[in-house]
Design a protein around this nucleic acid. Sequence first.
DNA 1: CTGAAAGCGCTAACAA
DNA 2: TTGTTAGCGCTTTCAG
Lengths: 337, 337
Amino acid sequence: METSSRRQPTLDEVAARAGVSRAAASRVINNVPHVSAAKRAAVEEAVRELGYVPNNTARALASRRTGTVVLAVSSDEPGLFADPFFAEVTVGVSSFLEQTDLELVLLLANTARGKERLRRLLSSHRADGVMLMALRGDDPLGRLAEQTELPVVFGGLPMAGTPRWYVDPDNRGGGRLAAEHLVGRGRRRIAMITGQPDLQAAVARAQGFREALTLAGLSPAGVEAGHFTQTGGEAAMERLLAEQPDLDAVFAASDGMALGAMRALRRHGRRVPEDVAVVGFDDLAGALYSDPPLTTVHQPVRALGHEMARSLVAAVEGEDPNPLILPTRLVVRESAP
Amino acid sequence: METSSRRQPTLDEVAARAGVSRAAASRVINNVPHVSAAKRAAVEEAVRELGYVPNNTARALASRRTGTVVLAVSSDEPGLFADPFFAEVTVGVSSFLEQTDLELVLLLANTARGKERLRRLLSSHRADGVMLMALRGDDPLGRLAEQTELPVVFGGLPMAGTPRWYVDPDNRGGGRLAAEHLVGRGRRRIAMITGQPDLQAAVARAQGFREALTLAGLSPAGVEAGHFTQTGGEAAMERLLAEQPDLDAVFAASDGMALGAMRALRRHGRRVPEDVAVVGFDDLAGALYSDPPLTTVHQPVRALGHEMARSLVAAVEGEDPNPLILPTRLVVRESAP
DNA sequence: CTGAAAGCGCTAACAA
DNA sequence: TTGTTAGCGCTTTCAG
């Protein structure tokens, strides 16, 4: 399994060509001062002529820095990453890392093997830092991540404990916004489709929702939990309709769930929004193109990724922890005008 | 920027602990034969006791293999990767790599910096191989990718030339299926919303579509190009309606475009499918949950990723090129029953 | 089957 | 501002 035949030029060759020591060449290439202009120019020239590209591996070994950060999604659902949410986060992460020299390693840990890999990663030093997402309540990786000396930034909070570094959307506030909007529009029999109870985001959204209802003197017309997917939302809506046929609004903890709910409502002959108003959460691309377009709680998903990456770099550079809560806001469309 | 303080155990320490030479320890850890059972056991024991994890960087430097493959998406649209298509491909790639010891590096090259990084990657040997997607017709990285000695697998064909290794869905066949279906359902004024003409997938889908129409003695009621997005599809549909108000069907080159088209149709008071039948391409999650559910050409997106990774590993291991065309099939739903 | 020895290509003291 | 000197931790001949 020999990867190459034609060898890449080495730093020594560049140095020889430029007529300087390897140390000087190294300094130029790493933009370290203490090099005369003449030497600098000579080295740059040699680099160009030889087409020199530094060998990252050797650099990593010598400097004890890998030049690599990991985005890890720990989950039991193999296809979880296919949720547009993660793609959008990834774009945000990448947009920040592009300004640095760090490489992004993607680790989708949804099998025993994958989890073991993540475990080894967290207990070794094979990356400069880790961004960790989608942690479930019972995931032992949470503890491990908080104990390791490797810098770790949580995307979304774990169920228990508060990590040193995290970036989290204001889920509770978002849940509140959704409920307030529906109440303000005169709805009174408001149900909720929440996510699995071992996901902090799901719990927080439901909590905000309940708080706002209570403040309005109402209580939920029903709460059903499901997966953060269209199928999950559809099934939950079916159950809600069975329990509370007279509900006049529903708040779903994700846009996907809201779409599934609308499908169930349609099948039951309920008009949206006339009979039942629907509010989602996320404001991903699908929300605008559903029929009717979905009123939803916007969370800044791409910014979430961007800030996770920024935080991680700060953590790697030894800055003091600076947890971040990103604001959410309501986007009103026709499903709950 | 010191990443660690507590040092990881080294192979030497393991060897010392097990009372064997470093070479022997190395053999055990890499499952190389020529080690006595006794020594093997002793090393395994030491590994467990010390919690030894091999240092990938050192291993890579010594073995001249990085243990890393890159999934590169070269594009000018910063958010392209947010398309569910790529997320699904990524899941497929990851599902294959999980069976290996390879790490997945994600390189979203949508800025000058990102492209430069990809260029350097292709002209150096800083990864064991590269999977390259979304190449546009004019992308100079295409040539570079075909010339480099680094194993490269194309996900989707480039506009010009045929790479040694690629995995491509049967786009042309898919386009044909869509047209045949619409013709078979009695539609006669069939338009198409195609993708940008510098994307091979868009061209191939349009080509198949035209072929099937011709075979049926028809010609397109109009063809408009747009971005592979909902917005792109919506705008293209608007233009088609302006040109050909009497069209009775439309084939969109992606599900996203089809959703956008349905939105435009709705706004113009056209019923789907009664007035205008709509067929999409992809069969991503959104297709099932649109209203009405979308008839679409299914392409095995996750499998595409899986096969790209499998091919890359084969390429890295020096096997002979084995390009792959994956089948597409029609999924009939209510937008074109 | 085993171990010694020679690097992989680069960085980082340190002394000059 | 320079160059010399040791490694970083592992793999891989090569003799034994």
